[in-house]
Simulated scan of single mutants.
Amino acid sequence: MTYSVHTYVQEMIGLYTAHTDEKYAQWSKSYLRNQFEFLGIRTPLRRKLTYQFIKENGLPQKEELKDVVFSLWDLPEREYQKAALDILEKSKKVLTSDDMPWLSDLIVKKSWWDTVDTLSAHIMGDLLTTNDKIILSFPDKWIDDENIWLQRSAILYQLYYKGETDEERLFRYIVRRATSDEFFVQKAIGWILREYAKTCPESVLSFVTNHTLKPLSKREALKHFKANIL
């Protein structure tokens, strides 16, 4: 069955609003510092509802994907942005480098760690493995941008690259933002170093030893083997 963008989104709204929980909505709103409204749908149920919806209605056609995602992104309740991310993750095979500009717009729209980390590490992280040109056009520019969420995205897009990590670029980005006073940038630095240490512990230990990092970044980076080096 083929739906228009409007109908597709309205069908999802109808499904979600049938499962609202005001008490959990208030808790969720407080957890994210009162920045967003919530329906109060717990993550396991939300994913179940979304995947059942996709099973019954299909994914948006490629030419409609952007409009569906932005329509969901514009809705006030946070669960709809999460639904948009679920749809994007299921649609990764049809995404190309031409989609990077509008995907990047999502980083700076209704920004918080819960959307930014999925966009950077899971969705754009896959796209950015394809060619160096889009890395030069996006992460290399994000790291110099004043927006902290673009900085965080530049640092985290290689989060799950393991042995495919461009170590030189990663360490260069970290040095660029090592003095940041922003919690979410410091945390991102520590997180990716901790993750990369699972693949190249010697490289991470050498980097941390020879560079000045904020205490939070250093503590997070060395969390798994700190006891062995103090």
Rank of each mutant, 00 (worst) to 15 (best):
Ala25His: 13
Val208Asn: 00
Lys110Gly: 12
Glu168Gly: 06
Lys226Gly: 02
Ala221Gly: 11
Ile229Gln: 07
Thr115Phe: 03
Asp114Gly: 11
Thr179Asp: 15
Arg42Pro: 05
Lys90Ser: 13
Leu32Thr: 15
Glu146Gln: 13
Gln158Met: 12
Gln35Gly: 11
Tyr80Gly: 02
Ala154Arg: 08
His6Met: 03
Glu89Tyr: 00
Arg152Lys: 12
Thr2Pro: 02
Gln35His: 06
Tyr157Ala: 03
Trp113Phe: 11
Arg78Ser: 07
Pro215Tyr: 03
Ser28Glu: 09
Glu195Cys: 01
Tyr16Glu: 09
Leu15Trp: 08
Lys29Leu: 00
Gly125Ser: 08
His19Ala: 06
Ala188Val: 05
Ala84Cys: 04
Gln81Trp: 00
Ile189Asn: 03
Trp27Asn: 05
Leu45Asp: 13
Phe207Met: 07
Tyr24Arg: 11
Phe138Lys: 03
Lys223Cys: 04
Trp27Gly: 00
Ile174Thr: 06
Pro44Gly: 11
Pro44Leu: 08
Glu167Met: 07
Thr43Trp: 01
Leu59Cys: 08
Thr43Arg: 10
Thr115Leu: 02
Pro215Asp: 10
Ile54Gly: 05
Glu63Tyr: 09
Asp181Glu: 14
Tyr31Thr: 10
Trp113Met: 09
Arg169Asp: 07
Asn57Met: 11
Tyr31Lys: 10
Ala154Cys: 05
Phe225Met: 10
Leu128His: 11
Ala221Glu: 09
Phe171Tyr: 15
Ala84Asp: 03
Thr2Ile: 14
Tyr24Thr: 03
Pro101Ser: 05
Thr165Leu: 09
Leu95Pro: 09
Ile41Thr: 04
Ala18Tyr: 01
Trp102Arg: 02
Asn57Glu: 09
Leu65Met: 07
Arg152Gln: 02
Ala18Pro: 01
Thr7Phe: 10
Asn34His: 13
Leu39Tyr: 08
Leu193Cys: 10
Val185Asp: 12
Leu75Ala: 06
Arg46Trp: 09
Lys214Gln: 15
Asp140Val: 05
Thr212Leu: 02
Ser104Ile: 01
Leu193Gly: 10
Lys93Thr: 09
Ser120Gly: 14
Arg194Cys: 08
Asp181Gly: 10
Ala84Glu: 06
Glu56Ile: 06
Thr20Asp: 07
Glu56Tyr: 04
Met1Gly: 14
Ile189Met: 14
Ala154Gly: 08
Lys110Asn: 14
Asp144Glu: 13
Leu205Cys: 01
Val208Arg: 05
Pro139Trp: 08
Leu49Ile: 13
Leu216Trp: 10
Ala84Ile: 00
Leu205Ala: 09
Arg194Asn: 13
